[in-house]
Amino acid sequence: MIKPLDIAAGSVLFTALVLGLLVPPDAVQGDLQRIMYVHVPSAWLAYLSFGLTLVFGVAYLRTRRIRWDHLAGASAEVGVVFTGLALVTGSIWGKPVWGVWWTWDARLVLTAVMFFVYLGYLALRRAFEDPEVRARRAAVYGIVAVAQIPLVHFSVVWWRGLHQPPTVLRPGDPQIDGPLLAALLAAVFAFTVVYAALVSRRAEVGRLEDRAATRPADGAVAGDGISAPPIVGGGR
């Protein structure tokens, strides 16, 4: 069933795609710069997802309602996917612009670390049968792991490296021309709506997974009506 949120996500994403292809290219990089309209929103979603995993985790610990845990797990899963997308698109951009697919720069290394740490979060969630135990441990892990976000974001300011410092989220004016900034903000907005749509779906699936695991033989099963035929006559 298609929800209104899915339609909204699809249409804003389409608008952002059209904008990203229509705005003029960057003067130095040419069309290569357009990958920014996927790369930057992906990195933003990584921050947002893991930040909200913390918020949902805290909400679970305070209320003990399992709903919050399903949201926390869904958010982390979406975050891992978009962290991966940020790494891959960055690599595809890095080859023609920097000249290398990968380099051991602080931003790149810390982003890869964040990817694997949250993969570990997803692994932790699978390790427990009991949803209550899983929710408690995952919430604590999510609270501790979130400390990396400022580390990843400010790595380009704190350490000398190859990755460029922030263009928009910086003191002073954004270092980007109007049309390019508009396309970038449209993409960030679109990805945020996509995030909401994906998390609401995934949290629902998480709820159903828990229900299936705790009540395996719920209701009638095909073949219930068949029983073994009575043995008549005894032995020969």
Binding site: V28, Q164, P165, T167, G178
Partner: peptide
């Protein structure tokens, strides 16, 4: 061995001043 260090500026050909 050379790597380009691209800075954080993004400018259009006609509009902005790089």
């Amino acid at each position: 061995s050379m790597i380009i260090k691209h800075d954080e500026q993004y400018r259009t050909e006609e509009g902005g001043v790089y």
